[in-house]
Amino acid sequence: MIKKYIALGLLGITLVSCSNDNNPDEYENIPDLNDRLMAGGETTVFLATSNAFSMPAPNLDPESLGIHLSGDVQFESIFVTAPANVNSGLGPIFNNSSCIACHPRDGRSAFPMVINNRSGLLVRASIPGMDAHGGPLAAPGFGLQIQNQALFGYTPEAAYQVTFIESTETLADGTVVRLRKPVITLTNPYMPFPAGMMTSPRIGTPVFGLGLLEAIPEANILALQDINDINGDGISGKANYVWDPALQQTVLGRFGWKANTGTILVQCAAAYVED
C-alpha cells in the first residue's frame, strides 16, 4: 500500500513538472471564441451553404445595400443580341453571356467538362514587347483575349483545345496519386496567328471581397513589399503599377491574376468588353 502511495505521489510530481514546463503563452495566442465566430468582423455572414459568398455584408447601410443589390442584378443578367430591349449588345464574338457564368455564386469557375462550351475558361494573348504604357502588347487581329464563341453568322477567333499530361506522385505515407495537368492550345483560327504570339489560359476567379481590397490604403500594401525576401520566409513580392485608362495615369495594380488592373471599375469594364 505504501508503495502505491509513493507511486501516485511521484506521478503527481511528474504531472506538475510537465505542466510547469509548458509555455503558458501558447494558450494566450488562441483567439477568443467570439473573435473566431466573428472572423470577418462586422462583415461576417452566418451562412454555411454554397450561397455564402453571394450574400451582402450585414453592416451595409441602406444606400450601400441598394447599390450592391443593383449591381447584383447586373452581375446575374444574361446578355443577348441587339436589338433586344433588355441587356442587348452580346457579340458578335465573345466568351460568355453573363458575369455569373464565369464566377458562379461569386466564386471560382470550374474547369469545363467540354473545352469549347461556355465556361469560366479564357485564353489571354499577346506578342513580345510592351504597349505605350508598359502593359502587354495586343496580338494583331486577336487583341488581348481569344473569343471562342460567336453569334450565328459570325466566326469565333479560334477554338480551344486541351490535352492532359499525366503524372504520379507518392505521398509521405506511401499513397500514390495520379495528377493531370491541362495544356490549352488554340486551333481553327479565323486568320493566321501572328508570329511569336503568346497565350495564357485563365479560370474565372472569386469576386467576393474585392471592395474591401480596393479600400486598403496604398501605403499599407507597399509596406508589405519584400522584393528581396529580407525576412527569409521564402516569399518575395513587388507591387505592380499599371495604366488606368479612366484616370489616365499610372496606379497601383490590385485586381486580376497578375494585379494588372487598378480599380474595380476598370476590371469590370474590361470584362464587359473582352469577355
Rank of each mutant, 00 (worst) to 15 (best):
N240T: 08
D275P: 01
M55C: 12
A57E: 13
A101D: 13
V176F: 05
V176H: 02
A52R: 14
V207P: 03
K4C: 07
I184Q: 06
Y272W: 11
I2Y: 07
E214D: 03
E63G: 06
F142T: 03
L15A: 15
A39C: 09
V177N: 08
R178K: 14
Q147N: 15
I165A: 14
P192G: 02
E28D: 13
P83H: 10
A52D: 07
E214W: 00
V45M: 05
Q74I: 10
L144P: 05
S54C: 10
A259Y: 10
D233S: 05
N240I: 08
G40A: 09
V266T: 14
V251S: 00
M191C: 06
Y5V: 14
Y160I: 09
A150M: 06
I230E: 12
I235F: 10
A101M: 12
I235N: 08
N220M: 11
H133L: 05
D106S: 11
D72T: 14
E76T: 11
S109Q: 08
N188G: 05
A259W: 07
T205R: 12
L212W: 05
V80G: 05
T155V: 15
M198H: 07
N29R: 15
G234F: 00
R254C: 00
S50L: 12
I2M: 11
L137E: 05
R202M: 11
P62A: 04
Y190Q: 09
C18P: 04
L15E: 09
E42W: 09
I165F: 10
Y160R: 03
L247W: 00
L47A: 10
K258Q: 12
S77R: 11
T44D: 03
I221R: 05
L247M: 10
G120K: 06
T43P: 06
G253N: 00
R202C: 04
I146L: 03
Q145V: 12
P206R: 01
L186W: 01
R118D: 09
G141L: 07
V177M: 07
F94Q: 02
L252T: 02
A269L: 09
V207L: 13
G41N: 03
I184Y: 04
